[in-house]
Amino acid sequence: MKRYIEVYKIMLRNSLIREMNFAVNFWLWLLTEFLWFMAQVGLVHVVFSFTDAIYGWNKWHVVVLIGTHQLTSQLFTAFFFMNLANLSELIRTGKLDFLLLQPVNSQFIVSSKQFGFDNLINALVGVVFIIFGCYKLALVPSIGQVFAFCVTVIFSVVIHYAFSFSLVSISFWFVRAQGMIYGYYSIMNMARYPDVVWARAHIALRAVLSIVIPVIVVANVPTRTLLGLTTGPSLLWSTGCLIGAAIGILIFSNRFWKFALRHYTSAS
């Protein structure tokens, strides 16, 4: 464990040096991601100009939801995204061999080599909107709620990571991962909807989207925990799905990675 912390420290330092070398790039990404988020908020504004509430969720509830999605997805992006996006390049150029030779867990080194500092700032933007939403709702969460929120956010980040890692592992077979990255975005975008909108969906579909591809719970559970929202599916059940999915997909991603690696070595 201690060795992993040491290794991670060195990689963090390298990432920081790297970011400082490409300062313009850093600011551009920061700005783009920020605008992207503002566009989401803009869409909420547009939607709520036609209605006051969606099955008990008003505008500021949804703003907190979007903020929470921003927080979890940007934390994931900060720690892992660049590495996962680069995986197919590593495979194509054969640089992966070099990483596999390192005396640490291969999934760890492949997933965490680069750190995105700009995303950390954008995660904070998400926090600002969560706080602003709470302020508008005239809501002060208890210490317990804030604590539960933080814990569920960690599980959400795990889901983001494990889900996308499983997706990009497919690039061992299909060399271009760009399609997979696109897939991650297009699926996870559904996490920004309040869970109540799925009430009309077939039970089987709801089950799949809560456990296998848990877009229904990934941002909703932390949000509802923080706000104490009781509308929609039982919070206890949803939280169970969140934790179960996080652990399940994480284990799956590791198994799948090892399986894919076997394919890789035999291919070369």
Binding site: V47, F50, T51, D52, A53, I54, Y55, G179, Y182, G183, S186, I187, N189, M190, Y193, P194, V196, V197, W198, A199, R200, A201, L205, V215
Partner: peptide
């Protein structure tokens, strides 16, 4: 992957239309 979000959009807009005036 492009087709999957349609699923979410259908339910999301259904909910908006249902609760709107």
């Amino acid at each position: 992957f492009a087709a999957i979000p349609l699923l979410g959009l259908v339910f999301y807009w259904r909910a908006i239309f249902d609760s709107g005036q």
